[in-house]
Design a protein around this nucleic acid. Sequence first.
DNA 1: TATGAATGAGCATTCATTCAT
DNA 2: CATGAATGAATGCTCATTCAT
Lengths: 204, 204, 204, 204
Amino acid sequence: MPRKPQQERAKATVDAIVEAGLILLANEGPKGTSTRRIAEVAGIGVGSLYEYFENREAVHEAMFQRIVDDAVAMIKPLIPELVRMTIREAVYELMCRMRELLERDDSRYLKCARHSVSIVRSYPLKPLQKVLTDLAMQYVMHHPELMRGADLPTMSYIFIYGGTFTVIRHLSDPNPPMSFDSLARGLANMVASSSEASLAAAKL
Amino acid sequence: MPRKPQQERAKATVDAIVEAGLILLANEGPKGTSTRRIAEVAGIGVGSLYEYFENREAVHEAMFQRIVDDAVAMIKPLIPELVRMTIREAVYELMCRMRELLERDDSRYLKCARHSVSIVRSYPLKPLQKVLTDLAMQYVMHHPELMRGADLPTMSYIFIYGGTFTVIRHLSDPNPPMSFDSLARGLANMVASSSEASLAAAKL
Amino acid sequence: MPRKPQQERAKATVDAIVEAGLILLANEGPKGTSTRRIAEVAGIGVGSLYEYFENREAVHEAMFQRIVDDAVAMIKPLIPELVRMTIREAVYELMCRMRELLERDDSRYLKCARHSVSIVRSYPLKPLQKVLTDLAMQYVMHHPELMRGADLPTMSYIFIYGGTFTVIRHLSDPNPPMSFDSLARGLANMVASSSEASLAAAKL
Amino acid sequence: MPRKPQQERAKATVDAIVEAGLILLANEGPKGTSTRRIAEVAGIGVGSLYEYFENREAVHEAMFQRIVDDAVAMIKPLIPELVRMTIREAVYELMCRMRELLERDDSRYLKCARHSVSIVRSYPLKPLQKVLTDLAMQYVMHHPELMRGADLPTMSYIFIYGGTFTVIRHLSDPNPPMSFDSLARGLANMVASSSEASLAAAKL
DNA sequence: TATGAATGAGCATTCATTCAT
DNA sequence: CATGAATGAATGCTCATTCAT
């Protein structure tokens, strides 16, 4: 019967737990994220963990939620900037920012991302999807000619999931066959040229 | 020390174990793939499982191996066909085949794919990567004009990882924002138009 | 990581575990000393056993330690008395006390002694050896004439190991060819006469 | 339902099993003496082991029997020689021979002796006890004056068990506080002087 | 409210023994 | 006769969760 953290202190404890979980997941893998270990690293007793979370699963969800929230918080303020760039520039910029987020704190989120799939029952990816869709919508509002072109939702979908996973995979690859920069430019080119192509097709 | 399955019967048992493991992974997730459960579903005693596999990990590897092998077996004979198509057609066709494989047996492989990341220590993805790289190479040999264009390894990398994951994600999505067909055509268009674009750029 | 028993209750639990282990070793042999069985007899859950002991081995060591400690605790306060006796009396007295300890609680330690060899990796016999060596040294300090005689360490070694095992063997023998009293007197005579002999030899 | 080995070949197989068991017990301890392992080293199938032995326990008994038999076989032919020596010489000689037997084949029997206690339910030590008692009896027949002295069975008992265990302990001791030779001479002196003492006592 | 000792179901793995071949 | 694949009970150990303090 965990309560919503109403007080300052409680909020801090919840934060400490999630933080501890992420650190352990990154450093020791799923097996390291036992409730005991998380509580220990968070500096609280095991029992207290259950004051704030229904069960282990709930902690995992909160951990994943945190990653998503951080990603959203990173992207949102970037939107005004991005919408004024060319597609090529915007995609490239976005990928570099994603990389920066994933490699922050000794690649904590990158390492977590590899395990998150197996740890959470259902992805609460919605907020991330929303902000990226917002970005896409605002982008086309600034570049109205694109609207005539391709199937926007599909393109976004491909970019969001395919792009994200490709970046994660590349950064995790101990021997990547190309530099991150090449990959980013390649993806930027791909997105740009396909949108230009559909634009051209629409003009005919 | 597990023995190599030399006899017919032994081979069948190994198969049954791997099969049981995949069924359980698909239906119950990683936690369902305990040695006891696998043996039970395979219709053998726990001890027998250890006659054929060093340990639990070895079973998991064999399971993943099986998926990869099946994917390779599906793609390989397709290559001669694919290389004669346009990029658009080839990508579309490949995606449809991938879907068919993933959704076979009540989406067994699709469900497994979601967990495989967490289950195997190191992906033996090499064979899959190889066959897809082969496909790309043979494709450009049949379409030499493409060689002048874009950074081929990067494009393949993006398509292989991004494309695969996008498909998996889409098929797993209980409420996908577009049909699989739209997604496949969208991805095919993207690949096609970007290769055409770089071709055009090269001509200048 | 098992905790040091800091509280009263914890100390009692540790004691109960060791006690249970000794009872089981005595009654059912090494095979009876499984962690589950020990926990059961100690009246606790298996998990709790691991709160106090790193692993099964550690329980076994504690069990053996307990026997050694009890033996030492029995001998130590006896030393002042023993050193004032003749060798014959002292050896006889010591053997009777050893017997009493071994046969206490329905011969628990006697039965355990038979198995302890196989159960502990390294004997922590040091404390026992030390107290017996102390006894020997204090004895010769009270009987300085003995110092002129035989090789004291060797004699002690023979008495400590040979004597101890002979007693254990005799008490375990379902059909001993002589009474314990005869054995004790015989050993006492042997030790006494050989020390007297080497004394006589030294005088020449 | 194991049969008595009636044929040559069967006898050889039984021998191979016992031999394998002793090698494994010496080299790998009790845990190494699984039926599988023994059969493997003996060069037969597990099933065949059960043709000759009721169960694992029976193999262990046969192993121990073998050690005892070898000890008896070593001592018996020595008796005529020993009875013509002084007690001191005889004891010393016997101990050296025991040592030689125990350290044969890279200390195989010595290592086994340490585990045999825990492995066999009941010691079939009787034959060894018998041959040593025979030795003692024949000895006093050659030295009739000894008969007047001490309690012969008791002295033998002490020597047999105490002496044997002291030797085993000393040879197993990684840091023995004296040389084997000192120990042997010390024990020889002890036995000699105590028999001489009881002789002297009897003369008064 | 916070704690951490206690729990026991569950897991991976081993191995004596059997029995169909 | 000999075999070794198959078995499943048993073992040591972990860990999510609870609850008395």
